[in-house]
């Protein structure tokens, strides 16, 4: 009789989620990692192949803490390149969903909403590629209980499309990609050039 499958195993749980089905097919050729731009551009520790190995070997804590789990933006450059047709971003998303389920928090920045100026037109909701924004009734000082855009940090990948689409400029990215930083940087150059 074939061995019963232990549904508590990380690999089994990943396989049960959409996109994770072919997890075990990975033969570790590394195409996904080298196709991915995150390792060279953002984080030298990023490695989808390693994350798949961690899932295969039930290294749950390592997988959830892995930077790969949180940085994948599901651009799916790797998916068409994978010779085993593994939907890598599906696997990563499955791991991420399991991590969020267990209370892990996305360590990366996400978009921030200025609830005092948001008019809840829903443009950000429409353009978000990750369905991370929704309109939620919120108590805003001076404005009462009104719907305002609310970002789910577990889904937001900080691409900034919401900010570019927002007419009331109520949503932006933190730190160096904030509207005010970009505009200040722009003017610093333009002013200096003229002087």
């Amino acid at each position: 009789m074939s061995a019963p499958t232990d549904t508590n195993l990380l690999s089994e749980r990943v396989k049960a989620l959409p996109g994770g089905e072919f997890l075990m097919m990975c033969y570790s050729c590394g195409t996904c990692t080298s196709k991915c731009m995150i390792q060279p551009k953002l984080d030298p520790n990023y490695n989808p192949r390693r994350l798949i190995r961690e899932a295969v070997f039930e290294m749950e804590a390592e997988a959830f803490a892995d930077t790969t789990t949180w940085l994948c933006s599901a651009c799916d450059l790797c998916y068409p390149a994978c010779p085993q047709k593994i939907h890598i971003s599906g696997v990563i998303n499955a791991v991420k969903a399991l991590a969020v389920e267990q209370g892990w928090k996305n360590p990366n920045p996400s978009a921030v909403v200025d609830i005092f100026t948001c008019v809840a037109c829903g443009m950000c909701v429409e353009v978000c590629p990750y369905q991370a924004v929704s309109l939620v009734e919120t108590k805003v000082a001076g404005r009462g209980l009104i719907p305002v855009a609310t970002v789910d940090p577990g889904k937001c990948m900080a691409c900034g499309m919401c900010s570019a689409a927002c007419r009331s400029t109520s949503i932006s990215l933190p730190t160096r990609h904030h509207d005010k930083e970009i505009i200040a940087d722009l003017w610093a150059f333009l002013a200096e050039e003229a002087a």
Binding site: T117, R167, S168, K180, I182, I183, A184
Partner: peptide, 15 residues
Amino acid sequence: CYCTECFVDHGVPRW
């Protein structure tokens, strides 16, 4: 034009 705060009235960044 129903924004509570129009982009021209923004302080920071001043668009």
